[in-house]
């Protein structure tokens, strides 16, 4: 028997009894960041591949949602900061070893391009909104220029979108201290998941049947790739060091097994996959809208599961000998 315990009381906020630094704010941010990336990529792809007819929503309307969704994500990211008044410190430096520093600069680049994407498709996608905007000075020439550079903007959006999505994964995978996260597969996994959630968004938003079918097919492919990446993720963990094995155990029989396999994998991947396959095969079930909803749920759950399990997975875990609630008495 090994008994390894803390014999002095320690109640470090969000570290004890187990790491709990990041909760829904960061999960939401990572989810929306990935979805933004997917939106930018699909919108750019539709432009570059001239899919106006087949995919009218993706070509003209999708771009508007990317900065909106990203802004919600950025808001929750800000909410998570403990020392909020110092947020500007992100932009006084580039720390080359810090994925978070890279991420904050990527966001600085993503924002203008995402907005240019909006501007270059605004008249086509949202004519009324464009008219309203054009009442303001300078908007008309800006829209003109943006439209003229539409392809270039699209070309720029794709690498930035990929960068954004992969960064949300690398952000976690760079933490060698959290064995569950510590695999490069998280980058591609979050990219594919981001694309899948963006596809689901299109499925929910478009009224064009052909576009629905197209994106259902794309999403089926993405979900299958995502499953493959998850398999690789698990292979990676289970063939790792003891710390990685312990981390794998958390979802392979451990306390997070149900959350991972029941909620995320089954509800968020398998069921929507089946629904979308039925849809592509022509079934006109009432639950077809459920497919993309579940994909979105699954996309969020992926980040939430990663957040929860990753923080519990650790190199050092001591049980405290005392009831930490007692320390609240010190506030007498």
């Amino acid at each position: 028997m090994i008994e390894e315990i803390l014999i002095t009381a320690r109640d470090n906020a969000k570290v004890d009894p187990y790491l709990n630094i990041w909760t829904w704010e960061i999960s939401i941010y990572l989810f929306l960041g990935g979805m933004t990336a997917g939106m930018m990529i699909f919108a750019a792809w539709a432009v570059l591949a001239k899919k106006d007819d087949l995919a009218p929503f993706a070509s003209n309307k999708l771009a508007l949602w990317a900065p909106i969704v990203l802004s919600i994500g950025m808001t929750t990211l800000f909410l998570d900061l403990e020392h909020k008044l110092y947020v500007w410190r992100f932009y006084t430096t580039l720390q080359v070893t810090s994925p978070m520093s890279w991420g904050s600069w990527i966001l600085i680049l993503v924002y203008p391009v995402a907005i240019l994407q909006v501007l270059s498709t605004l008249r086509a996608g949202y004519p009324k909104l464009a008219q309203l905007a054009e009442r303001l000075p300078l908007v008309t020439p800006v829209l003109d220029i943006s439209e003229s550079q539409k392809r270039r903007i699209a070309l720029a959006s794709i690498p930035l979108g990929i960068g954004l999505a992969i960064y949300t994964g690398i952000l976690l995978s760079a933490f060698s201290a959290r064995p569950f996260w510590n695999t490069g597969i998280l980058g591609p996994l979050f990219l594919v998941s981001g694309l899948s959630t963006a596809a689901a968004f299109v499925l929910l938003a478009t009224r064009a049947h052909a576009e629905k079918l197209l994106f259902a097919r794309i999403d089926i492919g993405l979900i299958l790739v995502e499953m493959l990446l998850i398999a690789l993720f698990i292979v990676n963990l289970t063939t790792g060091s003891e710390a990685h094995l312990n981390a794998a155990r958390l979802i392979l029989g451990g306390e997070f097994t149900l959350l991972f396999w029941g909620w995320f994998f089954t509800l968020g991947l398998v069921i929507p996959l089946l629904i979308e396959i039925l849809e592509v095969r022509g079934s006109r079930l009432a639950l077809v809208t459920l497919g993309p909803v579940l994909v979105l749920v699954g996309g969020y759950l992926l980040r939430q599961v990663m957040m929860d399990v990753g923080q519990v997975s650790t190199w050092t875990q001591y049980e405290s000998q005392y009831d930490m609630q007692l320390l609240q008495r010190l506030e007498r």
Partner: peptide
């Protein structure tokens, strides 16, 4: 503290769980 945003990346990055957040300040 004057540079810390309270993003907690360092807390996640420490394999020894040796870092903590100062409350109520947040760094």
């Amino acid at each position: 503290p004057g540079k810390c945003t309270g993003c907690k990346a360092c807390i996640a990055a420490c394999p020894y769980d040796a870092r903590l957040i100062m409350h109520p300040q947040g760094y």
